[in-house]
């Protein structure tokens, strides 16, 4: 049986400061996962990746990351992605400091 498709978001790092960014439904980038557009099917995911890859001068290393949609908002599935939404665990730096 094919594995059930998990919803995905497109993510990357910002060119200037390397901060984690997500692609939005408006076709731009946000620093907050909650504002990311979610692909619900493999076709949508492919389209999303295609659209997100058109910004080589703004972001670096675009890829699709699995999320769970909870109360209509995407939340990261894998611990690596959880850390990417927060920042390091040893200091209050990165996203968690800006929230």
């Amino acid at each position: 049986m094919a594995r059930a498709f998990e919803p995905q978001v497109a993510t990357a790092n910002h060119l200037l400061d390397g901060d984690v960014v997500y692609f939005t439904e408006h076709g731009d980038w946000t620093r907050h996962l909650t504002e990311a557009v979610v692909a619900e099917t493999p076709d949508q995911a492919e389209t999303l990746l295609g659209a997100a890859s058109l910004f080589p001068q703004d972001v670096v290393g675009v890829y699709l990351a699995n999320v769970q949609v909870i109360d209509g908002k995407p939340e990261p599935s894998h611990f690596r992605e959880i850390f990417r939404t927060r920042g390091p665990s040893n200091y209050h730096h990165g996203k968690q400091a800006e929230a």
Partner: peptide, 28 residues
């Protein structure tokens, strides 16, 4: 040249690595 768009990331990456600059999880 990376900032003004004349170098792509693929072109720039080896150059930055030669100068010790990595892109990590949350930042450079």
């Amino acid at each position: 040249r990376r900032l003004d768009g004349s170098l792509t990331e693929d072109e720039f990456k080896p150059l930055r690595l030669m100068n010790g600059l990595y892109l990590q999880l949350h930042a450079y």
